[in-house]
Design a binder for these strands. Structure first.
Lengths: 318, 318
DNA sequence: AGAGGTTACGGGCAGCGTAAGGATC
DNA sequence: GATCCTTACGCTGCCCGTAACCTCT
């Protein structure tokens, strides 16, 4: 009798057109996928998939079976969503996060996930948003917290938080009290996110003006490196203040008031449409809550800092 | 993630109200059932069944889950019926047969099942029809070939064959050429099916008349014994001639012409309504075909025998 | 006391991962 | 030759069955 695990495997092979892809999606090896499909074909008594071509395609009868498989998976998923205890969420969710999140609210997020879903394991990967997008589309991660809605078909997204991007530098670099014009900023090396990222492109185009001297732009895929460089006075970091809250507190870094119009980078939680998105949606829900609380807390704290009032420091962060 | 095996187990426990019953139905042990239910309850995060009472009853949330389980099982069953190769029928079917069937067309039936469904194993039990009926209702067998439709809710039945019941005795007992009246028959011991069977009751009421001497009625649960007794001249067997075709051929037994109006016993294939009756229905289909062919062949042969024409002996039996 | 469910434990086997072997572009 | 699927093989871990225990009527 065909079991749901095999049918699920069949569904993903048919959907992704690839045994290998299904194996990645299902967190297993490719031979395991082969074996499950072979089992299913033995149980049904006929070939479900054409393997000759580059992409695996269901046979005509395979297509009929596929319809039933989808219904079955959908029904199981609906059953779990409707009647199962939320805390019964189990297994492994592969989560991709942009590094900004690591430096802001990832830890409280994980803590709450651990409390809410004690049987759920997270596999966390940190990468830049474009790579996360690719890995999401390749089914290699189940959920991503990244910049901007990755506009692709069948990607579901929910907004998490907006972070203003500011110019931040070591206090060793002295500035006038008045807002600094972009020309003065451009005299220093600019340190920001990795190439190919949205903030990098924004910064590049900001300084890519005929009337400005060509700027030295340091891009790093590691935010920790960016922060380090800024701490060492190597240049001006163009990053959200939220990720260097402690350094701002300790006055090791300062926000530079400028004439440049501020802009935000928007983070979203994204996951692919699939028969069972219960885990992804539940985690996104938590992320939305945490990011909201944290964002509020952070903003408050930053406001406090800038007005030099240190009292009630941690209010709102619980 | 709940799998269909556990859900099927849950379905049967809920339906039969008993872990033990489900274990019998599913051809496994009771601890295995316990374990599957426990697994399911861990996966769902709540108790599915009340065990306090004599009969296991679904909890309210268990009832919701049960609805989904039924849908899932029905869907899988439909999928298999619609798209699976018939020869892919696999597993074990527990078949109960009345002994008359053993002596008539069970062997050709098994042969054809072996050919048609090479991956299907039969577990055959021979018993009298009332016991088969009980075992069917207790879910201990999946399919039964027995006498008369066992009128019970949710039992599906299809007619297989009708066998006339005749008086058969050793040629040692001499009879006049004319049809024998019941009074003369009653002087000999009567040998027939076991107590509680329909033929036994019929024979008993036939001879239970005030004007007849009380008859000696030998009942045997073993048809082979009945035949043996008749061959040894111990009395008159009241059985369908179909089961002693060879002995009639070899003139070791003869049909006694009587004034008693002949009557038939009707055999049917019966199985219980369930989420997956594919195997039972497929086997019933074969049984209907075989019983029809065999019945035709037998009747022809018997006619031939009685008219002493031995030619074309095996015609129609293929 | 007996029927029915749970718990404990040992063994068998299904299914996994590693690694090598084809096939197809 | 690279990519993808299949086959081979050893191993782990799950699940089953046996048996003892527990709990109700």
């Amino acid at each position: 009798m065909p079991d749901l695990k095999s049918l699920e495997t069949f569904f993903w092979v048919a959907t992704l057109g690839s045994f290998r892809g299904a194996a990645l999606k299902l967190n297993t090896t490719q031979p395991a996928v082969s074996q499950r499909i072979a089992l299913l074909e033995r149980e049904f008594g006929f070939k479900l998939l054409h393997r000759e071509k580059r992409v695996a395609t269901p046979t005509p009868r395979g297509r009929a079976a596929l319809g039933y498989a989808e219904k079955l998976l959908g029904l199981r998923s609906e059953m779990l969503a409707r009647v199962a205890e939320p805390s019964s969420l189990t297994g492994v969710v592969r989560l991709g996060v942009a590094e900004t999140i690591v430096h802001t609210w990832l830890t409280p997020f994980i803590r709450r996930v651990d409390r809410t879903y004690p049987n759920l394991a997270l596999e966390i990967e940190v990468d830049i948003s474009p790579n996360l997008r690719d890995r999401l589309l390749a089914q290699e991660i189940d959920l991503a917290f990244l910049i901007g809605p990755p506009s692709a078909p069948s990607v579901h997204s929910r907004p998490l938080c907006n972070y203003p991007v500011t110019f931040i530098a070591s206090p060793r670099i002295k500035w006038p009290r008045t807002p600094v014009p972009i020309e003065d900023l451009a005299r220093h090396p600019i340190i920001t996110f990795a190439r190919n990222t949205q903030p990098y492109v924004a910064v590049r185009s900001l300084f890519n003006r005929p009337d400005l001297p060509s700027v030295r732009l340091h891009a790093s895929a590691s935010l920790a490196t960016v922060i380090h460089m800024a701490l060492d006075g190597l240049g001006i970091a163009v990053i959200p203040p939220a990720i260097v809250g402690r350094e701002l507190d300790q006055r090791k870094l300062c926000i530079i008031e400028t004439t440049v119009p501020p802009w935000d980078i928007a983070f979203v939680a994204s996951w692919l449409a699939a028969p069972d998105t219960r885990a992804a949606e539940s985690l996104a829900q938590i992320a939305i809550a945490i990011a909201g609380e944290d964002g509020a807390g952070r903003l408050e704290r930053i406001a406090n800092r800038q007005s030099r009032r240190r009292s009630q420091f941690k209010a709102g962060s619980r």
